[in-house]
């Protein structure tokens, strides 16, 4: 399957606002004997930020990792149910997991730049997927990705220096730039700000809001303020179950479930 060109993506992205991008139906995850995620069904709409919240160990990260099949890497993990991306089953045997991960990018909790130069960090994805025909192409992709991640101005003079030398917030934005350099359709973010200070967090949150225009974003966070600030829709998980899912505003102002209410008002968590 070819990777859609960026222009196409932007157009189709805008056209498809509000439609489902990723759909999960009755998803269960088991780690050995442990039933970590119980019959979760969820629609993720294109060009929106969907926040997954809930107390630690509630299954929100597990669910996130189902979406690009990172759970495959965990020994003894088993996933049942159906997850589709644009209608295609992502657990289908004939689907190439490598291509899936090129379409669904991921940003991790701890900034994890490769111990290589800033340029090589961003260029790695386009290189392995053959997205650039020439070095000029590649440079263009790198620069535009860094620009979109709001990092270019800060690092343009030291692209050949190691990415590990940046500050924590810059590293995380580098990781975001690295993820969008592949032109994914969906970006998964697993508590992307938990290792950052408030100023860096604010920058990343701003960035997430800007990225929404071109990408579908799913973010796991344990900060309810963050969920309220950046997301359009919020899903609340508890003990492996999806308790409530709806517009962020509604969840935070008028939760339907007692459990949700308890959590967002800080009675437990």
């Amino acid at each position: 399957m070819p990777i859609a060109s960026e222009a196409f993506l932007q157009q189709s992205g805008r056209a498809m606002t509000g439609t489902s991008k990723v759909t999960a139906k009755d998803v269960n995850v088991y780690y050995g004997d442990k039933h970590a995620l119980k019959a979760v069904s969820l629609d993720i709409r294109a060009n929106e930020v969907t926040a997954l919240i809930g107390p630690s160990g509630c299954g929100k990260s597990t669910f996130l990792r189902c979406l690009n099949r990172m759970n495959d890497l965990i020994e003894g993990a088993r996933v049942t149910g159906l997850i589709t991306l644009d209608g295609d089953d992502i657990y289908d045997y004939s689907l190439d997991v490598v291509q899936l991960r090129a379409r669904i990018g991921m940003v991790f909790q701890k900034p994890n730049p490769f111990p290589k130069s800033i340029f090589d960090n961003v260029a790695y994805g386009p290189r392995i997927h053959g997205l650039a025909q020439s070095s000029a192409d590649l440079e263009e992709i790198v620069v535009s990705s860094l620009q979109r991640a709001g990092l270019y101005e800060e690092v343009k003079d030291r692209l050949s220096e190691p990415g590990t030398g940046l500050s924590g917030g810059q590293q995380q934005r580098l990781c975001i730039a690295r993820a969008i350099a592949v032109s994914p359709e969906v970006i998964l973010m697993d508590e992307p700000c938990s290792a950052l200070d408030p100023i860096a967090t604010a920058k990343v949150e701003e960035l997430i809001d800007e990225l929404r225009e071109n990408y579908t974003i799913v973010i796991v966070t344990h900060s309810m303020q963050q969920a309220a600030r950046v997301s359009q829709r919020t899903a609340f998980f508890h003990l492996g179950e999806l308790v409530e899912f709806g517009d962020t505003e509604q969840i935070f102002t008028n939760p339907q479930q007692k459990l949700t209410q308890g959590y967002i008002t800080g009675r437990f968590g």
Binding site: N68, M70, L73, V98, Q99, L100, R101, A102, G105, M106, V107, F108, K110, N112, P113, F114, P115, Y124, G125, I128, H129, C175, R178, A179, V182
Partner: peptide
């Protein structure tokens, strides 16, 4: 392990992950 996650998350295959990142390190 996060080096491996980062590579796989970008859509590198396992062998690419090993050859490009883990083995050189």
């Amino acid at each position: 392990p996060w080096i491996r996650e980062a590579a796989l998350g970008l859509g590198a295959s396992r062998l690419q992950m090993v050859m490009h990142h883990v083995l050189p390190l």
